[in-house]
Amino acid sequence: MNTQNQSNTRLLLPEFEYVKPKTKTEALQLLDQYRDKDTRILAGGTDLITKMKTGALSASRLIHVRDIKELSGARQIDSALHIGAVTTLADLERLPEVKSVYSALYEALRSMAAPAVRNMATIGGNLCNGSPAADTAPALMVLGTVCTLSSLTGERRMKLSEFFVAPGRTALLPGEMLTELAVEGVRPGSGSCFLKIGRVSADIAKVNIAVYLERDGDRITDCRLAAGSVGPTPLLLDSVASLLKGSRISQQMLSEAGRMVEDAISPITDARSTQEYRKAISCILAEEAIKAAWVRSGGEVPR
């Protein structure tokens, strides 16, 4: 056998054990059993395996959950769309209701990676990674998403905005996994939008912004904004939302909202962009996103 060829394609991975539970209960049992060890959940692996290969992360055991059927797929329960944590980005993007109802989520999915990566990557993996740049995070936050964290002893639910704790850290406790996301139904007369700036298309965001708003005539009656890559976690921009709530849309209003975004965020300079650029571009993205959501809600282009 050609050994050169072999070393050519070998992983730079340390040794680990691989386990593949068949059901959610089995997965939770394994998580519970190994909670004190260096055990990690493997979903699509697009973050985890890449990080393990580059040495950024290590694990002694991987619990593969990507093929657990009860954790995959989406269904409508009452007005909310319930999405299993291991649903792939590609499968979500193909759902007619995501495209027609949840514009911000659809645009976030479309902006991510290449199709081959989206075929592997899961929505749960994107969130559990805890990256401030995770593209689905701001979109799901403004659409009003509640996540379900499950362990052998039970379940707890929290708003997605409370799920992110620090860079690379989420509210998940040892023995817990993310199992489901419930996205609120949108109101008639509402609109949403996601915008992102990367170095090239389908790249990790320098800045991403999502907006959801409800309209009555020429007024914004309710509104949520969130931004990513501009702070330690994806941020809900409540101060900007309160400014917009109840106000009449105008170009002046949009400019003021943009300025407020700049104050509400705390970006850093890193490999992808600078603090200054992130601040400057965030204002513009916010204005554009609010405008687009407004037009989608049926409103006229503000002057």
Partner: peptide, 30 residues
Amino acid sequence: KLGCGKGDCGTCTVLLDGRPVKSCIVLAAS
């Protein structure tokens, strides 16, 4: 083929259950 080995370049693309994936970041066991 192995290009980058970390999901960026696509030289390792294969179809898994009919859909293209980057086989350099898929575990064979999975």
